[in-house]
Amino acid sequence: MRIAPERSPALDEALGPGSPIVVFDKVSLAFDDKVILRSVSFTLLTGHTKIFLGASGAGKSTILRLILGLLRPDGGVIWVNGERVDEMSEDQLMRVRGDLGMVFQEGALFDSLSVAENVGYKLYEESDMALDEVRSRVEEVLGFVGLGEHIDKSPSMLSGGQRRRVAIARAMAFKPRILLYDEPTTGLDPITADSIDNEIIKLRDLENVSSILVTHQLRDAFRVATNTAVRNGGRVEIVPADARKADEAEFIMLRDGVIAFEGNAAELRAATDPYLKAFLS
């Protein structure tokens, strides 16, 4: 089951493991006189993770909104899944969004719908899938995030951490190839934050989803970058990643709209720049 747009075999091969799936080339954006992003360039490879760090207002969430086409850049080029999105109309963007899942800050669940309707929203409203198939997919993804028993509740009856997990379930329900996380653990206690991190790791390593994580929670950023999910019999375990796997998660530090650092977890820890050291301390 996938409602994402079909790709030609050539494009599928071109966007296979290790090839660029999201590309920013000299992207700039300003709101009136305030510059948000200044000539930002980076590449996300298929199956890899980019972790954006930075202070509030550094432009981290803006990057996710640009990828989704919720905002348009003033300059530069953005490629997502082999398509140039910075020039697309809203109708064309709907097709690209078929392969993008987004977990918003605070979840952004629909208050008027139940957990099941939220999770299956795209399948109910934007696909021709039979209702019983949608229901079984909803049960499957809610089981994946450990919320199977809350399927018929209203979002207002859930805790903050549960709402974020429902938001993850909603973003993954239609099996997108790319998942975007906007501060998914902010404001949560460390144990709940760990459970969210585990979902991100599981989706990346078991479902082969390329992901971009925006956060200023260093603990969660390093946890996602340095751990991996493996199946052990019928169980899924989160274990420390080997060096090759850890290299697939790359950090980008944004400062005043420009990239102040780009590298893996070990390189970030070893950075000598005073701003980075202050941020990491």
Partner: peptide, 18 residues
């Protein structure tokens, strides 16, 4: 208005709904 300020409108667009 509540849907806008809680990002639900953006969530709708992200889920492919106009």
């Amino acid at each position: 208005g509540s849907m806008v300020v809680t990002d639900q409108i953006n969530a709708l667009r992200a889920l492919g709904t106009d």
